[in-house]
Design a protein around this nucleic acid. Structure first.
Lengths: 340, 340
DNA sequence: CTGAAAGCGCTTACAG
DNA sequence: CTGAAAGCGCTTACAG
């Protein structure tokens, strides 16, 4: 082992000719407050010694002492999902800016796996959690509350738990308005699973928006599946098996929309000429598809950042409220004015 | 704060009527070795006390004492990229199985950002690093070596640094063979950036495979861009601006392939009737696209898992070699026998 | 303004 | 087989 011993507070203290406690105080206070703790010359000496030695606080020592790890855990359904990866990036960014580091882990929307992952994070002594996989009925959240584990939600809501969300109902309504304005009269929906508030709210907003225009959405025009391409493919297959071809398909996720387009094509239906398609999230892919996809843009990175902000308030025991973000519709070539 | 004090070794020791050192030894040894450390009855008492109290080792105390954090850092170009998210999942899985936790962070393939991220990870006292963003010429790796920081590479190679990789040259060759066998004679390539060994090797294998069949690849049939859909779109636009329409396009990434298909369509070219398209990675999307994409499957999850395995060997100062994986070609509808 | 001391929770040589 | 002690690096009330 030629790796040299990492400098500690003691190394710095010795080099600067002061006590470790003084070094600790100086290094841990901002430029302003430093003067309260040490003479300007002492501060100078300490700062120089620390810089020369390349001192870096050992977080384990600090955490052990303070019982605060400055670590947070983020639980996502699956990191391979672009939307969730983006939300994590937002959390991670905001966390890093505040001196925190973030772990991410997949729950796969499986309650058992999820609980195991949360326990692992807690075992690592994270200060708090950001959960991106809340369920409409969610016993885990109650359990965490009972154990006084600080957590916030992101993206998906559950009960009145605090977090950072998008106005998904509005998102669904925007899609309904877009389609009806273009002249579509018989749209169908391939919605994500019922345990996800996002899927429910997008569907709910869509239904409401249609009804407001006198176009109630029949139950057989709705399929509940998952959020990936395969789900979209299966969803459309199911819709087509049920009855007449809808004139539009709203998939509550861009990937599902891509699968939906594939399935439509398998049945000899062209997009947008025969069927209009709308996705959700404005994934970068949406714009680069052979037929660019009409979709709803949701500020996912911001949601991630905001989730951390709310969590930090919770950790500081400050009063905190949920933060909400507004989606916008992005019209592209996969929908068009209907010729009649 | 109603949150009850977390039980410590001391709590357990008191409950079991033994010393903390005994508890530590028993809890840290496997079933087999336990008997060497304590009488069966003592072991029993300790185990029960720990279980009843819900004891969990405080990793900060342990890390402080042992100077081992059981933490690893994973650096990826970007987590939003499906391939990298998958590799991270592999690393994380393998790490968790071995009692490690993993941080991930984005370098965005930017040297400055990358170095900053690595320093942050080191500041968190990770035991080692998995770098998925190695560069063909990579000063950071030399620096890490000098500082004796244990690291391994994944996916992208650089020099003879150890890691877990796929045989990308073979992957490129498989594509060349597939296309030539179908009768394509004038393929073009939209390859990732030159600092990524994966892009270079896929291109190199492709070129070599073509040459072996008497079809040298002209320089103006190669465009170097990025790995995302936008890059594929731009790459094809560039190719078409340069000269005659190629009869096939090999994009070294599925997302680039999707962008390429979009750009081809913009120019009124149909896939596969006018131009064949091949991607790389067999992203789930590939199979669900309107025109399912011929692509190369690379065992990315395995690569991630293997990378951790190699890292663990390095951490144990065991001799370690790189692990290599074999890709396979997945033919789909985006390529077809050429009619002449 | 600065120092000395205590202690966070853990592991590990050292005794016995 | 088990205990007592030391110490990892840090922070923070307490003195002065």
């Amino acid at each position: 082992m030629t790796r040299q011993q990492a400098p500690t507070l003691r190394t710095v203290a010795t080099a600067a000719g002061v006590d470790v406690s003084t070094v600790s105080r100086v290094l841990n206070s901002g430029v302003r407050e430093r003067e309260r703790w040490a003479g300007p010359e002492t501060v100078e000496r300490i700062l120089r010694a620390a810089a020369e030695l390349g001192y870096r606080r050992n977080p384990h020592g600090a955490s052990l002492r303070t019982a605060r790890s400055h670590l947070v855990g983020v639980v996502v359904p699956r990191l391979q999902d672009y939307v969730l990866a983006t939300i994590f990036e937002g959390v991670d960014q905001a966390a890093a800016e505040r001196g925190y580091a973030a772990f991410v882990t997949n729950s796969l929307d499986d309650p058992a796996q999820r609980e195991a992952r949360v326990e692992q994070l807690l075992g690592r002594r994270v200060d708090g959690l950001v959960l991106c996989d809340a369920r409409t009925d969610d016993p885990l959240l109650r359990m965490l509350d009972e154990r006084d584990v600080p957590f916030v939600l992101a993206l998906r809501t559950s009960g009145d738990h605090v977090g950072a969300f998008a106005d998904e109902v509005l998102g669904g309504r925007l899609v309904a308005e877009h389609l009806t304005e273009l002249g579509y009269r018989d749209p169908a929906v391939v919605a994500g699973p019922g345990y996800a508030s996002t899927a429910n709210d997008r569907l709910g907003g869509f239904r409401e928006g249609l009804r407001a225009r006198g176009l109630p959405l029949a139950d057989d025009r709705v399929v509940r599946t998952g959020f990936d391409a395969e789900a979209g493919r299966a969803g459309v297959a199911e819709l087509l098996a049920r009855g007449p071809v809808p004139d539009a398909v709203f998939a509550t996720n861009d990937f599902a929309a891509i699968g939906a387009i594939g399935a439509l094509r398998d049945h000899g239906l062209r997009v947008p000429d025969d069927v209009g398609v709308v996705g959700y999230n404005d994934t970068p892919l949406a714009d680069s598809l052979p037929v660019p996809l009409t979709t709803v843009r949701s500020p996912t990175l911001e949601i991630g950042r905001a989730a951390f902000t709310v969590l930090e308030r919770r950790l500081a025991a400050e009063p905190c409220e949920s933060l909400s973000f507004t989606p916008t519709l992005v019209p592209r070539a996969s929908t068009q004015a209907v010729q009649r």
